[in-house]
């Protein structure tokens, strides 16, 4: 589904990603871990088309198409979803309005009719319930005054409504309390399907306790320095990243 080859990316002429290679198939869950500042969010942003990054080399293909050439909204409509590490607030625009506009944009792209207002409301209400969110969040402005954890949960609500094919979760677990983590993880698990792939950026094993990854990658200094199975995350939890500096890298 996603194929990244030798990807190098600069921000303001400073190299941030230094040759990323990553193959992701439908149905798989990939966890990306790594120290602060190693380039995890940068990778997530580049995949979703955020402006301000210069791709200096390599290729990204998504479902066989060149992702780099697609405008960010087209990528979104084609099924690339990013749950942001820091979701922004949009004053004056209600959550439900954004959700409906987003869903209709995706549907239109797929050649479907706009969703009927009643159907939409029952869909949203069902999803919001599974995430244990109050319905009042629907009518509040997007993320405005939401707590850190509420914002993260709101991202997952959007993902549940849009049903994307490639879900990129950038530290969705950070800021969630213990119960919320469980609820969000259940929400994510509910979306697991053979047609869908996940990239989960995380610092902690506890998310992976709920959602077992097929692969774990360690990103450091803009490169994937180590890849492995679910047990790699357990090892990292014990050992930290000190070994990176000691030259024990054996990717």
């Amino acid at each position: 589904m996603l194929s990244i080859k030798n990807l190098t990316v600069n921000i303001n002429d400073k190299a941030i990603l230094n040759g990323i290679n990553l193959e992701i198939n439908a149905g798989e869950i990939h966890a990306i871990m790594g120290p602060n500042g190693s380039g995890k969010s940068t990778l997530s942003h580049v995949l979703s088309g955020k402006p301000g990054y210069q791709i200096t080399g390599g290729t990204i293909h998504y479902k066989g198409k060149n992702l780099v050439d697609m405008a960010p909204e087209i990528r979104a409509r084609e099924g690339v979803f990013l749950a942001f590490q820091y979701p922004v607030e949009i004053p004056g625009v209600s959550n439900v309005y954004l959700l409906k506009a987003a869903l209709n944009a995706v549907r239109k792209h797929q050649g479907l009719d706009e969703v009927d207002a009643m159907d939409f409301l029952s869909l949203v209400k069902a999803k919001i319930k599974t995430l244990d969110m109050d319905e009042r969040f629907l009518y509040r402005a997007v993320n405005e005054g939401f707590s850190g954890g509420e914002k993260k949960r709101n991202e997952i609500l959007q993902m549940a409504i849009l049903e994307p094919a490639l879900c990129i979760l950038d530290e969705t677990d950070s800021g969630l309390d213990i119960d919320a983590l469980k609820i969000v993880a259940e929400g994510i698990n509910a979306l697991r399907s053979p047609e869908r792939a996940f990239i989960m950026v995380t610092h902690y094993q506890r998310l992976l306790d709920y959602i077992k990854p097929d692969y774990v990658h360690v990103l450091a200094h803009g490169q994937i320095v180590k890849s492995g199975g679910a047990d790699l995350a357990l090892a990292l939890e014990k050992e930290g990243y000190g070994w990176l500096e000691e030259g024990q890298v054996s990717a």
Binding site: E73, A76, R77, L82, V88, E89, I90, L98, A102, V106
Partner: peptide, 18 residues
């Protein structure tokens, strides 16, 4: 409030045109 680039990108990431 400010319409920043971040808000715009957020909306685009959800499928809306700029």
């Amino acid at each position: 409030a400010k319409i920043g680039e971040d808000q715009l990108f957020f909306c685009q990431q959800r499928g809306l045109s700029a």
